[in-house]
Amino acid sequence: MSTRVIIIHAADIISHGLSGIIKIKFNIDAITIKSTDNLANYTGIKAQKIIILVDANLDSKQVSIATKSFHNQNHLKIILIYAHKEQIPSNDQVDCCFSIDASTDKIVEVLNPYLSPNKNPASKKSSYGLTEREIDVVKLVAFGKTNKEIAEELFISIHTVISHRKNITEKLGIKSISGLTVFAILNNLIDAEAIDITELI
């Protein structure tokens, strides 16, 4: 579930400043380019979401032509960086905008709905107080396995599986199997694309 960010701005001080904020606050490495001409090099990007932050000084027609190749295949959002209020377009060509004078907090607030931090599975695994073994059990439950199947797969007794499941429910506060599946997906324990969501949730 990756998100890519492209900043198009002639001024290095702005694009580098912004990419710094995005790295710190959202853990995303932004691509910085100086004009729409270079955008064509990135049309092959594989990402579920592409956010383009663009300088309001650039010709809006050129921007819309250059970003066209991203449409259809990706979830594309265009955010305008303006120097003067007059540069804010009245139509809906852009999804939102902020001023170059905006504070870090303001920028984060504007970007927040568009940028989910790229998740780092390794760092999340140890959270929520689950043991390695309990995480194994959660994964298998999320894949729709029965207690018996889990016991066989992990070479443990059914009683042990049941006791793991009891502890998991207590620690997480999630009782139903589909609730555990949702938990596993949200925490990158399993890949949502690897399962049939309509069946397992």
Partner: peptide, 8 residues
Amino acid sequence: SHSDDLKI
């Protein structure tokens, strides 16, 4: 919110 979590 454009959040994948919320879609799940």
